[in-house]
Amino acid sequence: MIVGEQKTLDEIMGLLGDAHKVLVAGCGTCVTVSFAGGEKEVGILASQLRMRSKLEGHPMEVDEVTVQRQCEWEYIDPLAPRLGEYDVILSLACGIGVQAMNERFPDSITLPGVNTVFLGMPVEQGIWEERCQACGDCILGLTAGICPIARCSKQLLNGPCGGSQNGVCEVNPDIPCAWQLIWERAVKLGREEWLLEIQPPKDWSKSRDGGPRKIVRDDLRLADME
């Protein structure tokens, strides 16, 4: 899932500037389960904004809405009739949702209230870790199911490096060495041979180095849209 983190109230107040009427728009998918921008966070932030702006002497009118997914036209289109009444929409979706709102409703200003941080998962209550960098060329079949692109600080394809000490990364002792994890899992599975082949340099053109990416599935497209 996409993991987000809400911006500070000070930063959000700065972004909103002198707006009088604001719609806080949450998203019911990834940012809901990372507790950054779901219905509950929308309610809390809206309340904070109302109180803070009142204390600062320019009370804002703040409304709340949460859609199931802010990154799909079908879910945000129903918002269209009411958007004209707001000076600003503060989106608590990920960066995709914020851009979808701006693209679909070009006459409204949608600002981000959340920092989109990474693709990852909750490893325990309250802790999320990065697991994927969407590099476009998955190598998990070669690395015992553990991604060195997302989890090795140097994104090495042939590790570990000399900075791996006692199973942790030299960058930060809180980061387990991904290549240590890969090796240990391969040994446990009796598949050390997976790691004997030297991997050539990665084709980064399938990642961001090739520019913004796009997938076209003709089998899924509707005839009148071709």
Binding site: K40, I44, Q48
Partner: peptide, 11 residues
């Protein structure tokens, strides 16, 4: 009791 209810009371 939810945080939103506490904030609602303060509001």
């Amino acid at each position: 009791v939810e945080v939103t209810e506490v904030l609602h009371a303060f509001e």
